[in-house]
Design a protein around this nucleic acid. Sequence first.
DNA 1: AATAGGACTTAGCAAGATCAAG
DNA 2: CTTGATCTTGCTAAGTCCTATT
Length: 563
Amino acid sequence: HDVLWLDSSFSHLLCDVGRWEEAKYESGVKWKFLEHKGPCFPPEFESLPDNVRFYYNGKVVKLSLASEEVALFFGQMLDHEYTTKAVFRENFFKDWRKEMSSEERLLIQDLNKCDFSELHAMHKAKVEARKNMSKEEKLANQQTVEEYGFCLLDHHRERIGNFKIEPPGLFRGRGEHPKQGMLKKRIQPEHVIINCSSESKIPAPPPGHRWKEIRHDNTVTWLASWTENIQGSIKYIMLNANSKLKGEKDWEKYEVARRLKTCVDSIRRQYTQDFKSKQMGTRQRAVALYFIDKLALRAGNEKEEGETADTVGCCSLRVEHITVHPNLDASDFVVEFDFLGKDSIRYYNKVPVEKKVFKNVILFMENKNPSDELFDRLNTAVLNKHLSSLMDGLTAKVFRTFNASITLQEQLKKLSNKSDNPSEKLLSYNRANRAVAILCNHQRAPPKTFDQSMANLQAKTWQPTAGWNRWKRPDLSLSRLVERKKKAVERCEEQVLKMEVQATDREENKQIALGTSKLNYLDPRISVAWCKNMDVPLDKIYNKSQRDKFAWAIDMTEADFVF
DNA sequence: AATAGGACTTAGCAAGATCAAG
DNA sequence: CTTGATCTTGCTAAGTCCTATT
């Protein structure tokens, strides 16, 4: 099982499915040889200059090093609205006081009496200064990447995804996070586990330090790890998306989704049957699966209360997240969903469902409080256990991948024509991508400058610039002049069309994020094949890093690829 | 069957880089 | 050359799902 890489692209080998499968099943080995420099640590905190003062109750207080650092974290964030939030302030103050000396703790009892404005100003000035002197810094950054950003994996140089230890700061979290404002502590080498080959050069810890542990576990892909103090979860340093290890995994993911395509009809027939099962658990499983399949909901693992923001997925939906409408806007049997999903992004949708689903939802809600679980006989473990019995490797998230990719393929077929002009083709692609993003509920905050930039684009539509300033050319004959002007008009029309298409695209995209689905849900081979069929250059669809990530697909895909 | 720990993917935001217009 | 808009990347939180343990 020596690794035979012909070059940095592994796609030729990926085509040879059986070989890789065989190698993997034999032992669970992920690599034979792994060597790296260890993680890069953020600079240590140095005490503030004397002219940057902290005031308590109007009086200057010289803080100890530890509490000064934490005070600076707060001062840096003063522009953000969340420093005004009660939960944030309370958590911050509690953790800050833990870092204070006993005298400081005695003195500083009220956050409202703290004045961080000079710390804030210093931070702003630093940001400004960094902008101006970026040249040397850029060089230094490049050197850091050179030194820490790569590892040797099975004798090939691979890019590391995140080679820096996360710097300390105040935890923000998303949505109404109960732990917002808590102190995220500085990670020392003594907290870090290094994973590498035993026969490799062991990375040297920073001077005066030692690692927590050196491990040689070739069944995992991480190079270093540490435990984070907010949730107590493990953080990892792993490879970049363009690495062989990640690419292979990505390819596998889409192959599983393609297998679902071959059996999804029978799975749908079965869960439709199960709508009328005598077992309540089976009915709940069937309805949940229907939602996951139809609406691309996430599985919805249980979460520990009070540890994270209150968000749900399918299995963890509560009665309060659902409203049933026997009749709504000329549709029968409408279920209205309104809940916060991953990252506290709101999911709001009114969906006409099958009558049996509707009746079941009403049944599941009977005699329950709003805060009770809708699917009280179901969780993700039960659901996934069932799914894996239907198809090898099938889990709830595979439905999201499958439905996203199949939707892209269908929409591309429906929307695009070979005879379209390039910008129309691109609009079609983006619309197909958008259909998926809407399905998966990938939202974004509308860009701050959105209205302005729309207005700019509209204005431009009225003053195309293709050569109108060239009226005076006395040396030309009249017929040549007419010809030229005709051409100019044509160019203008083309430009206008292009801008109108662009404006449409942007308007439709106001609150939709296309990136997440493009990166994580859409089989890149669909896009590569479409580009080949439509004579669209691939770089219109994928930027450099996306092309790197999808190198495997770009290499192996022909125009006739079907998901 | 419930729970915890672990490893990995998926996610939106903001900083930084690049591009286009003035 | 500067400035503002847009695109890209870095960051790290927040999910999924698996395995081991009780």
